[in-house]
């Protein structure tokens, strides 16, 4: 069995300058599923809960909104809640999408000009995996997985991190004004460059943390499945990947929570002290 590991998401096809990668496709599917399911539950929801869907959705809202309001205060928490709630739902389902059967294991033939970055191949004779065939004109045909977790694509995590830091800056400016925000970051003045670096590094830390954890988890599970398959030992074949799948379920939740909570903390820090500048409501503990 060959295990094909690529840091970059594999391109399935291109639309102009846009490369539709397997993670992009999964992102669209996950977003569509979340929106359809969420809208369906919200449409059927009643004041007296009437089903497991509403119960689960409301349990999530209770859990996350409680954390958000307790951390950022009720007013700021309510304003940032759409971002935090959406981030958490999308990231956790993206992480879990990588654990579904078929994601990463159903392949599509694709012609590539040059070999993509590959980390490892674990080969076992007689087991068919993604094949690479060298063509005469330098191109080669590769079999790429059709689906891949969006969180295992740096484009996705980077996009989310950039959006988050942009919103953090907007929140800070809305709370303090442009001058106030700069003053907030430059107190004392010589710390301003460090603050700028810190803001940029937040993008890197947020995106690479999520990407690294999810990608490493998927590689780990793939390797465990490969090792288990290579041993031809039935119990190990079943038990070892199952243990790591359970771990990935835990890590998927933790990483989603970490991303959402860090976003929340960044926003809370950016708007901190705004109470003294004209938000008497918040200062009274509302």
């Amino acid at each position: 069995m060959d295990i094909h590991v690529s840091i970059a998401a594999e391109t399935l096809f291109s639309i102009g300058p846009l490369n539709v990668t397997n993670s992009f496709l999964t992102m669209v599917i996950v977003m569509a599923l979340i929106l359809i399911l969420g809208a369906w539950i919200a449409r059927r929801a009643t004041l007296k809960p009437n089903g497991y869907g509403q119960f689960i959705f409301e349990s999530f809202v209770d859990f996350m909104l409680g954390i958000v309001e307790n951390t950022a205060g009720k007013r700021v928490g309510r304003r940032i809640w759409p971002l935090i709630g959406s981030l958490f739902v999308f990231i956790i389902l993206s992480n879990y999408s990588g654990l579904l059967p078929g994601v990463g294991t159903i392949y599509l033939e694709h012609e590539e000009a040059e070999e993509s970055a590959q980390i490892a191949y674990v080969s076992q004779p007689g087991v068919q995996g993604p094949a690479i065939a060298q063509e005469d004109d330098g191109h080669h045909i590769v079999e790429v997985p059709i689906l891949r977790s969006p969180s295992a694509d740096l484009n996705m995590t980077l996009a989310m991190a950039i959006l988050v830091i942009f919103i953090v800056q907007v929140a800070g400016i809305m709370a303090h004004g442009v001058g106030g925000r700069i003053k907030h970051m430059a107190d004392p003045w010589w710390i301003f460059p460090l603050e700028l670096i810190a803001e940029v590094s937040r993008i890197v830390s947020l995106s690479f943390r999520l990407f690294g954890n999810v990608f490493a988890g998927e590689v780990l599970v793939a390797v465990m499945i490969g090792i288990a398959a290579a041993t031809w030992f039935a119990v190990v074949t079943l038990a070892v990947p199952t243990v790591f799948l359970f771990l990935e379920v835990l890590f998927g939740f933790v990483q989603a929570l970490v991303f959402a909570l860090l976003t929340l903390i960044y926003v809370a820090l950016a708007v901190a002290g705004a109470d003294e500048h004209g938000n008497p409501e918040e200062s009274h503990g509302h």
Binding site: L35, G38, A39, I41, A42, R43, A45, P82, G85, S86
Partner: peptide, 9 residues
């Protein structure tokens, strides 16, 4: 998501 799912809930 906010408009059709999270907001109403």
């Amino acid at each position: 998501f906010w408009k059709f799912a999270l907001g109403p809930i």
